[in-house]
């Protein structure tokens, strides 16, 4: 039997209960093979090295969106990101324990508040999600309306928004967005992609309400199309496209409001 290959990883550690002011790096040697994910690494560390390590995970199959971390400075899903891809470009099969330069540096998602180790506070993200009313708004289909018809939708109508409906709320796009990093009030890529998803849905009638949020400076207009959010999205949602399609919609909706003579103000408060 061959010895398992090993490599070094640096993991960001932060425990306020221990009195930490700032995170520090912990270097660990971990075994890996071709199927070892970043999440497997964390699980190995928790079980074999240091049981106090905190991180989030659930599905291990890129569906729940809870395992987001920064790997070498790039937002990644831990369960969809593999050690082999990091050691490969330094020489396949070489034992990296030989030199103890870390192959991977694992940190909590950028731009969020660190709570403990790799766990961040996602409240800002959730507030933005809620603000755009990410659900079908149809006054005619209230439960107490007996005449409400069932919603039918053609494949073509579904195709208009399907891409934007694939979001798993992992928040990687927020960790990739410098505008969100500079201004946490920015509604941000995933929430705007979701707003756009419902605006494009043939069953929905809530576009006007959502545009009140998107039309503001902290809505679509904070985006400068850096585009990194779409690069890191593990689900191919292309939130940058949604935000910038949202700018076109916002420009239209502001023009309409201008002609109607109503104000374009922020109605969120």
């Amino acid at each position: 039997m061959t010895q398992p290959r090993t490599c070094y990883v640096d993991i960001s550690r932060y425990d306020p209960e221990r009195g930490d002011q700032y995170p520090t790096m912990q270097r660990v040697q971990v075994p890996y093979d071709d199927s070892t994910s970043v999440l497997d690494v964390l699980q190995y560390v928790k079980e074999q090295v240091d049981s106090s390590l905190s991180y989030r995970w659930s599905c291990r199959m890129a569906i729940c969106g809870s395992c987001g971390v920064m790997v070498n400075g790039i937002p990644k899903l831990g369960c969809k990101d593999f050690v082999r891809d990091y050691v490969a470009h330094k020489g396949v099969g070489r034992d990296h324990a030989a030199n103890d330069a870390p192959a991977l540096t694992i940190e909590p998602l950028a731009h969020f508040t660190g709570e403990r180790d790799l766990v961040v506070n996602m409240d800002e993200f959730l507030t933005h999600l809620e603000a755009v009313k990410p659900y079908i708004i149809d006054p005619a289909s209230r439960p107490n309306n007996p005449s409400a018809a069932t919603h039918s939708q053609t494949p073509a109508q579904l195709a208009r928004y399907q891409q934007f409906a694939n979001c798993i709320n992992c928040g990687l796009c927020y960790a990739a967005c410098p505008q969100f990093g500079l201004n946490p009030e920015f509604v941000g890529p995933a929430a705007i992609a979701l707003a756009h998803r419902y605006n494009l849905d043939s069953r929905d009638h809530g576009k006007h309400e959502r545009m009140q949020v998107l039309n503001t400076h902290d809505g679509v207009w904070s985006c400068t199309f850096v585009g990194f959010c779409s690069d890191v999205c593990p689900k191919g949602v292309d939130p940058a496209a949604a935000v910038n399609q949202g700018k076109v919609e916002s420009a239209k909706s502001m023009l309409i409001q201008l002609f109607k003579g109503s104000s374009i103000g922020d109605s969120r408060s």
Partner: peptide, 18 residues
């Protein structure tokens, strides 16, 4: 207790995409 990492003016030097 928690910490909030601040973005400095040099954020765009972090990697190739930026």
């Amino acid at each position: 207790m928690s910490y909030k990492p601040e973005l400095t003016g040099r954020w765009w030097l972090k990697h190739g995409h930026f």
